[in-house]
């Protein structure tokens, strides 16, 4: 499954390199429709489980904190590894605060802070999504189901949601959707906030 997903991505990149499509409205419409179909399928499989509510209620209360732990862990992780690359800690933290939502974080950073750092945020958050696709099964196996929600960050509500669902269970899929939604709301709040701090 992971290899088929990665294969689709690699085939797309190769196709894009060869064809060099003009960046398209049509492509984003296709993407939106595919995302909607994907979420429909996940919703459907959750609806098929008659015991779902009971399982969701059995989640420990700390589950509510999961998106905030993911936000904090992403920022701290980027700051620490940023030091390895001799980056200013604040700038590395800013790149990490995209939480995987590469398009939005890159635009926000490029527009109101620095174009080069915006491009770095774009690449970093794209790679985060690819790492998530590759390693969610491994993380679920060795670090527990809740931790499998973490690699995808904000994408746990869309692209990486079916992967989390396939490698964990229904209640973790609900947790992933909740966490991805909260993180998606946090990106346009935290990124501008960190930019403000950096510009002082």
């Amino acid at each position: 499954m992971t290899w088929k997903i990665l294969g689709s991505l690699v085939a797309g990149v190769c196709g894009g390199l060869l064809l060099n499509l003009p960046g398209g409205e049509a492509l984003s419409l296709v993407t939106d429709l595919a995302l909607a179909a994907l979420l429909f399928a996940v919703g459907f499989s959750l609806g098929e489980d008659p015991e779902l509510w009971k399982k969701v209620r059995s989640l420990p209360p700390i589950s509510l904190a999961v998106p905030f732990l993911i936000a904090l862990g992403s920022i701290l992780g980027a700051t620490v590894t940023g030091l390895l690359c001799r980056m200013a800690p604040g700038e590395a933290a800013l790149v990490g605060s995209g939480f995987g939502w590469y398009s939005l974080s890159a635009v926000l950073i490029a527009q109101s802070y620095d174009v080069a750092l915006g491009t770095l945020a774009l690449l970093t958050n794209i790679f985060r999504e690819i790492l998530a696709i590759l390693f969610i099964p491994t993380v679920a196996k060795y670090f527990g189901k809740a931790a499998a929600v973490a690699p995808g960050g904000a994408t746990a509500m869309d692209v990486t949601l079916p992967i989390v669902a396939a490698h964990t269970d229904g209640r973790t899929a609900i947790l992933a959707f909740y966490s991805g939604t909260v993180l998606s709301i946090l990106v346009p709040i935290v990124v501008p906030f960190l930019i403000q701090l950096l510009q002082r």
Binding site: I70, G73, G77, A78, V80, T81, C85, T124, R128
Partner: peptide, 17 residues
């Protein structure tokens, strides 16, 4: 950096769980 974000977030959720 992307490895950092993944490791940091996985570790915090793992510790909390």
């Amino acid at each position: 950096l992307s490895v950092g974000t993944v490791l940091g977030s996985v570790l915090l959720v793992w510790l909390a769980s």
